[in-house]
Design a protein around this nucleic acid. Structure first.
Length: 548
RNA sequence: GCCCCCAUCGUCUAGAGGCCUAGGACACCGGCUUUUCAAGCCGAGAACACGGGUUCGAAUCCCGUUGGGGGCGCCA
């Protein structure tokens, strides 16, 4: 029997870390066992579907390299892989259950259901839907509809305990008592299937053999077993994966990003480096909404949050796969790291290529404890991996990074220039580091912005020692017979030695004068790249400004 | 509230009753290197949640406690 796995996300936006790991494990299992990996889009909630969200999700999957054998864009035997395009399939199966008395119509309103749930809660009972003694017929459904009552189809759950044979949870299966399950809705009032129903039908249609999914699905598995039994379907092998949490143990979500930006905003306002009004305007938020966000009552939407973060000059923590791409992580490294959140190949192995993971993966070695997402370790993985790549490969990654940052001055540079920048920046942790270090080299020479802290510390402190050094050095540099990193290096060193200065005492003033900051690629190479004219223009400009 | 899952350094984990004085990785701390930021090199500290069993012997098996996570929708 050929192994068939699937990743079945609900398209509510970009792919999350947890979703990516679920996808990865399904992918690895299929690859390891010579099976097929299917992508299916679970878009059965009309209210929640965001326009074209599946495209973002698919983009992230492709970027990660988690390519599917069947699914959107590649097709397959099931024909359609968006549940929204398979409605007739679900309806046919629902009708079958209706006809055989294994499902029935129900006409309760939300209010009635809420009231029943409240009553159960106050009586300290678990709510169970009160199944009618006699099921309503088609005529009753017609009447209910004409009276404007909601009409749903509920599944008549078999009245017995269920045992979920899970590869990861429990030993000898997880037993869930009959009292813990009830007659759940399979067809909503809008005629669309619920998740529980669509997932069972599709896993059967698509011949899925192994279901690896988040542990939050463990308790709904009896619903699926009941449906499979009543529909005469196979039951796939289940493995419910532990959850990935934030470092603080909370559930990983966009909230963390929101909180990070909020605390930066509060700090900036408290330190008077910014005002609430200025930030609000920069973020483009309504005054009341912004105030309520600052109090922590609500979250900001993604775009507003990004603008606020930019205005504050803070880098919010990456949450979604897309965030990591935008920071300049290597996709295979991200996958490698995520795989280790729950899986270990043993023998102290950690750093692995995709091929190695495919060869080594096994469910027996997947753990069962929740993992926290440690960005520091991921950063280390990325740093190490980047250091091992050759320049053309890094350039490819940098191009991808820049495709998301069209406003970067690096975005329009030719390959030869990018290669030069890459070689000037060893030891980078993420691709964004290249941009941070190099962007000043592409700024206009006139009116180069100087960081005040750098200016005070490096040029003005100690009675302008840095500035005086700079002035003395300028003419020596101007007189250099050739403008190469080696020549500049020799000149600066001999100058420093003659004055009894450390190299840094000379190099830092030049760096600040030329780049406006204390951080840049190696100075002499930077000066060579900039050229004599532009370098001297910047130094002289800075000197002029500070003298005035 | 009821039900389910889980429990080794700060974090991810190795560990299938003696190989454990508990191994690796990241982080942290100390040192070296260094024209900035990184990177690199060397070194140190750091864990079997608790309480009962079982056994000659328990991180490993059983029970309980505590703690963490999840579920109880016409969301997925």
């Amino acid at each position: 029997m050929i192994v068939r796995t699937r990743f079945a996300p609900s398209p509510t936006g970009y792919l999350h870390i947890g979703g990516a790991r679920t996808a990865l494990f399904n992918y690895l299992l299929a690859r390891r066992l010579g099976g097929r990996f299917i992508l299916r889009i679970e878009d059965t909630d009309q209210a929640r579907n965001i326009d074209r969200a599946d495209e973002k999700l698919i983009e992230d999957m492709r970027w990660l390299g988690l390519n599917w054998d069947e699914g959107p864009g590649v097709g397959g035997p099931a024909g359609e892989y968006h549940q929204s395009r398979r409605l007739s399939v679900y309806r046919a199966h629902a009708q079958r259950l209706l006809d055989s008395g294994k499902a029935y119509y129900a006409f309760d309103t939300r209010e009635e259901l809420d009231a029943m749930r409240k009553a159960a809660e106050s009586a300290k009972r678990r709510f169970r839907y009160p199944r009618a003694a006699n099921f309503p017929g088609e005529a009753d459904a017609q009447r209910a509809r004409s009276e404007g009552r909601p009409v749903v189809v509920r599944f008549r759950m078999p009245d017995r305990d269920f045992v979920v044979n899970d590869l990861l949870c429990g030993e000898g299966g997880v037993r869930i008592a009959a009292s813990e399950v009830d007659d759940f809705v399979i067809l909503k009032n809008d005629g669309w299937p619920t998740y529980h129903f669509a997932v069972v039908v599709d896993d059967e249609d698509m011949l899925v053999t192994h279901v690896l999914r988040g542990q939050e699905h463990l308790m709904n598995t009896p619903n699926h077993l009941g449906l499979q039994e009543s529909l005469g379907f196979r039951t796939p092998v289940y493995a419910h994966l532990p959850v990935i949490l934030n470092m603080d143990g909370s559930k990983m979500s966009k909230r963390e990003k929101d909180a990070a930006v909020r605390s930066a905003a509060k700090a900036a306002i408290a330190a008077a480096t910014s005002s609430e009004e200025a930030l609000r305007a920069a973020a483009g938020a309504a005054p009341e909404a912004f105030a309520s966000w600052l109090r922590g009552d609500v979250q900001l939407d993604a775009a507003t949050l990004d603008r606020a973060a930019a205005a504050l000059g803070v880098q919010p923590p990456e949450i979604q796969i897309h965030d990591f791409r935008a920071s300049g992580y290597v996709p295979s490294v991200l996958l490698n790291f995520i795989a280790l959140l729950g899986w270990s190949p043993g023998e102290d192995r950690e750093k692995m290529s995709m091929e190695e993971m495919c060869a080594l993966f096994s469910l027996e070695r997947v753990g069962r404890t929740n993992a926290r997402f440690d960005r520091a370790k991921l950063l280390n993985f990325n740093t190490t991996a980047l250091a091992a790549l050759d320049t053309p490969t890094k350039r490819g990654l940098l191009r991808d990074y820049l495709s998301l940052h069209g406003d970067s001055p690096l975005a329009t540079q030719p390959d030869a220039m990018l290669d030069r920048l890459i070689d000037m920046c060893p030891g980078i942790r993420v691709l964004r580091d290249i941009e941070i270090k190099c962007r000043a080299l592409f700024a206009a020479d006139d009116g180069l912005p100087i960081d005040p802290a750098a200016r005070d510390k490096v040029l003005l402190r100690n009675e302008r020692a840095g500035l005086r050094t700079l002035e003395e050095l300028t003419e020596r540099l101007a007189a250099l017979p050739e403008w190469t990193a080696a020549a500049i290096d020799a000149q600066v060193r001999s100058f420093a030695e003659a004055r009894g200065l450390k190299l840094g005492d000379v190099a830092q003033p030049v760096r600040v004068a030329v780049t406006g900051t204390t951080v840049s690629p190696p100075l002499f190479e930077s000066l060579e790249l900039l050229g004599r004219e532009r370098s001297l223009a910047r130094i002289r400009g800075t000197v002029r400004t500070l003298r005035a």
